[in-house]
């Protein structure tokens, strides 16, 4: 299991567009990937799961992955989350 914490920087948090980007990226990996906030954990390949976390600006989220390409998946997702989704 690989795990890393990230603080969300973009102004509007994880709304539909960032959530779409997360799902599309997570789907590229075979590993099971989750996103967690305040003890809630959701499937990072589920757009509704991600959005239901209600992540706003300055929130800390945890990216976890389990499986063969887990390390790559976590690296890629952390990079996307830290980039502020190009906003």
């Amino acid at each position: 299991m690989v795990e890393k914490k990230v603080v969300i920087k973009n102004e509007t948090g994880i709304h539909a567009r960032p959530a779409s980007m997360i799902v599309q990226l997570a789907n590229k990996y075979g590993a099971e990937v989750t996103l967690g906030k305040d003890g809630n954990e959701v499937n990072a390949k589920s757009i509704m799961g991600i959005m239901s976390l209600g992540v706003s600006k300055s929130t800390e989220v945890t990216v976890k992955a389990e499986g063969e390409d887990a390390q790559d998946a976590v690296n890629a997702l952390v990079e996307l989350l830290e980039s502020g989704f190009g906003e």
Binding site: A16, R17, Q24, V42, K45, S46, I47, M48, G49
Partner: peptide, 16 residues
């Protein structure tokens, strides 16, 4: 078109 991309992902949502 972004909103329709989100709709497509809802359709494919594994949790749903």
């Amino acid at each position: 078109a972004e909103i329709f991309q989100a709709h497509l992902l809802v359709l494919a949502d594994p949790e749903l």
